[in-house]
């Protein structure tokens, strides 16, 4: 059952997996950033910078999967 399913998959499953991973990563960064702002609202400016950079790193995984893997 599993083997024919896997055989049918092919194509760009790596992009899907990378998208899944980076989505989880972006979600984690957002969650922790909002927690940090909740704890220390004064540091909003610094937290949003670090959060955006973290999100950008996490997001880049999809582009590696899209353009580097064939």
């Amino acid at each position: 059952m599993v083997t024919p399913m896997l055989a049918e998959l092919g194509g760009s499953i790596h992009v899907g997996l990378a998208g899944l991973g980076s989505a989880i990563g972006v979600g984690l960064v957002g969650m922790k950033a909002s927690e940090a702002v909740g704890r220390n609202p004064g540091a909003f400016g610094k937290i949003i910078t670090i959060g955006l950079i973290g999100m950008a790193f996490s997001e880049a995984i999809v582009f590696y999967a899209l353009f580097l893997v064939h």
Partner: peptide, 14 residues
């Protein structure tokens, strides 16, 4: 260099 260039290229192209 590969990761640097593909990160920027991928984001902008996407």
């Amino acid at each position: 260099p590969i990761s640097l260039s593909f990160r920027l290229f991928g984001n902008m192209f996407a």
